[in-house]
Design a protein around this nucleic acid. Structure first.
Length: 615
RNA sequence: GCCCCCGUAGCUCAAUGGAUAGAGCAGCGGCCUUCUAAGCCGUGGGUUGCAGGUUCGAGUCCUGCCGGGGGCGCCA
């Protein structure tokens, strides 16, 4: 509406329209409205008409001219300030609309209409027969949140997982199992841990006794020959891993719609190389002296090393990871031909490799090659001593706390950091979450001792998982997350528990008010700046969701959720709700509280974080 | 050698090319007989690594340096 008025005015006065309309928030707390910078318009006009007026001066003149135009809209007040047109909305009138919209839409507030467009997000991609550790956590948490955000933005999302269920690591594991643990079975509760321990053990044995290596190679041959007995054992042990992963996914509230297996891509991958890539002249076959490669730079006529050379098959004809990613991409589009995007959530170190895959598929002529997208994220770093401590087989939780505390304080110098990985020694998730829960539980005990034990436990899980997820999501994807207990489980400030706590305060108010939300009212009292600020944050939420989806950045949601929590806490501190001056004020504020609770819950939901009723 | 990412307050991080660069933590000082103090208020803290350029306007875009991390034909 505002835009229409401005456009009409510009047209009337023969002033060029801006190419893109961009509105922002006017500065200052406790106001609600939109701001429009006239500089681009003024600059374009000055250029088009060859005027000799300074742009800022012309922008201010335009803003002043537009002020009365915009103020014709009821409930709107405008100011022309330093080249900006600040448009303030009457919070009595529009505030009611915002609150009503939130409460009417409920858990759908912030969600966009269905677009009828499907996209796939592949994430997690754990290796079976190996550990699942904190280094994998960012991927899962990021992937899940991206899926939720894209879904909210109106896309139909296919969540895909791709299990690394074959390769040397699996063979090593099977060798160790057959030789030293025949017939053993994992404990029900800690399957991943048990499987992972055996993998670490296999590596240790092979390092200490290189003479075993021929045995492992022989086992690989048996695998290549698809020895039925070995295949059966592989399937059985793989299932243990998968069940362990499912335990973790359940804990994290993550699910997948489609699971692909690396083992399924092996044969199609080899066939693709032999029957397509080589005959098409895309791949060069240097076997047996060398591997089969796709010389991308040469094919593209690039002087400067850009895509480099992509190795798709070993010189002995066995497959690589790279062999399997091509048929995987193809299979995705065979199953879902209508994908508007196929997103790979994979860490940044594989950027070049991803570009190679995408470019090779493009050269093969697949029309969907430009719909492949690598969503890169940086690693999780751990203080070196935390990694070392974790390498010790038996580690008491308290020792690990001490270690990380020493690292985070550090006497002037920074503690060296190490990427979390399974080779270096994993910080395993069961231990990690046990400790996170223990810490959260202690805080719950301190803050709210009257809660029943079961509730305390439940709240502790919500807080612990929320804190960890928030830490992983509340930063730019391209920046490393440095992990330590103190910060990840910091329950103060810009962290999940602050947001959860605001939600709890809302819930508490509504409980005390008897549970029923009053009928819609237009406030008659003079609105406190804190109230206006809160309304402003509520109103901004749907746009934030859109932006987070466009940019694949949960960070925008964490920022919005935290701002909303801050605005609510400010409101809570200054504006009595239950004992408000009059019934209308009380009713409006109760509705505002209910709307805040709903929006906080919706935001947390997009982050995969639970919103407790008490804590 | 080539390529990618990062560099913002003591620390951890924000900031669709827009107004006086903001939060949290840590520090200091206040606020709980009144809706949950996991909160709120106040206070100090900055040459946005450096130098140019584009622009009415640059933390943001371009170029070159400096510093840190990562990646570059048979690992995944």
């Amino acid at each position: 509406m505002v835009q229409d008025r401005i456009r009409a005015y510009l047209r009337e006065h023969d002033i060029p329209e801006p190419a893109t309309w961009r509105f922002s928030k006017p500065p200052g707390e406790g106001t609600w409205g939109i701001s429009f910078a006239l500089f681009p318009v003024a600059a374009a006009e000055v250029r088009a008409k060859g005027l000799s007026i300074p742009v800022p001066q012309r922008a201010q003149a335009l803003a002043e001219a537009l002020r009365p135009v915009v103020e014709q809209i009821p409930g709107v007040r405008a100011e022309a300030v330093r080249g900006y047109l600040n448009i303030y909305l009457d919070p009595h009138h529009y505030g009611r609309q915002v609150v009503d919209a939130v409460l009417t839409q409920g858990e759908h507030y912030g969600r966009a209409p269905r677009r009828g467009e499907r996209l796939m997000v592949e994430f997690s991609q754990p290796n079976t027969h190996k550990a699942f550790h904190v280094g994998h956590l960012r991927n899962v948490i990021l992937g899940e949140s991206i899926c939720r955000i894209l879904d909210a933005a109106g896309y139909d999302v296919v969540r895909a997982n791709y299990l690394g269920d074959i390769g040397w690591h699996v063979i090593k594991w099977l060798w160790n199992y057959l030789k030293f643990h025949p017939g053993e079975e994992p404990p029900e509760e800690y399957k991943t841990r048990w499987v992972s321990d055996l993998y670490v053990e296999a590596n240790r044995r092979l390092k200490e006794h290189p003479e075993y290596e021929p045995e492992v190679r022989a086992l690989f041959q048996r695998w290549e020959a698809r020895d039925p007995e070995l295949v059966a054992l592989w399937e059985k042990t793989r299932q243990w891993s998968i069940e362990g992963f499912e335990q973790i996914y359940r804990l994290l509230d993550v699910h997948f719609d489609r699971v692909y297996y690396e083992s399924e891509m092996e044969e199609p991958g080899k066939a693709l190389v032999e029957e397509k890539l080589i005959p098409m002249g895309i791949a060069r076959d240097y076997r047996p002296e060398g591997p089969v490669v796709v010389p991308l730079d040469e094919l593209l006529g690039l002087e400067k090393p850009t895509y480099r050379t992509y190795v798709v098959l070993r010189s002995d004809g066995t497959s690589l990871y790279a062999t399997k990613d091509l048929p995987l991409a193809i299979k995705k589009f065979e199953e879902y031909p209508d994908l508007v995007r196929s997103i790979y959530v994979i860490d940044v170190r594989q950027s070049l490799y991803m570009k190679q895959i995408f470019k090779t598929l493009e050269l093969m002529g697949y029309p969907w090659a430009d719909r492949l997208y690598h969503l890169a994220y940086e690693l999780v770093l751990l203080p070196a001593n935390m990694v070392q401590e974790a390498e010790e087989v038996e580690l008491e939780p308290d020792e690990s706390i001490a270690a990380s505390a020493a690292a985070s304080e550090g006497d002037g110098g920074k503690a060296p950091l190490k990427a979390a990985s399974s080779r270096e020694g994993a910080v395993l998730l069961d231990k990690f979450f046990t400790e996170a829960h223990r810490r959260a539980r202690a805080i719950v005990e301190e803050k709210n001792p009257s809660l029943p034990d079961e509730v305390k436990d439940q709240v502790a899980w919500q807080v612990a998982l929320g804190a960890v997820k928030y830490t992983m999501l509340a930063r730019e994807n391209t920046r490393t997350v440095t992990f330590d207990w103190e910060k990840a489980l910091d329950f103060k400030g810009n962290a999940a528990p602050t947001i959860q706590y605001a939600h709890v305060r809302c819930a508490s108010l509504l409980r005390r008010a008897g549970g029923a939300i009053p009928e819609s009212v237009t406030p008659t009292h003079e609105l406190h700046p804190a109230e206006i600020q809160l309304i402003s944050e509520l109103a901004a939420f749907p746009q934030t969701v859109q932006r987070a989806a466009e940019e694949y950045k949960p960070l925008h949601i964490t920022n919005a959720a935290f701002r909303l929590a801050q605005a609510f806490n400010d409101f809570y501190d200054r504006c009595p709700v239950l004992s408000a001056e009059d019934e209308t004020t009380r009713a409006f504020r109760l509705r505002l509280v209910a709307a805040t609770k709903q929006t906080l819950a919706n935001a947390l939901r997009l982050l995969g974080i639970e919103a407790p009723e008490v804590m």
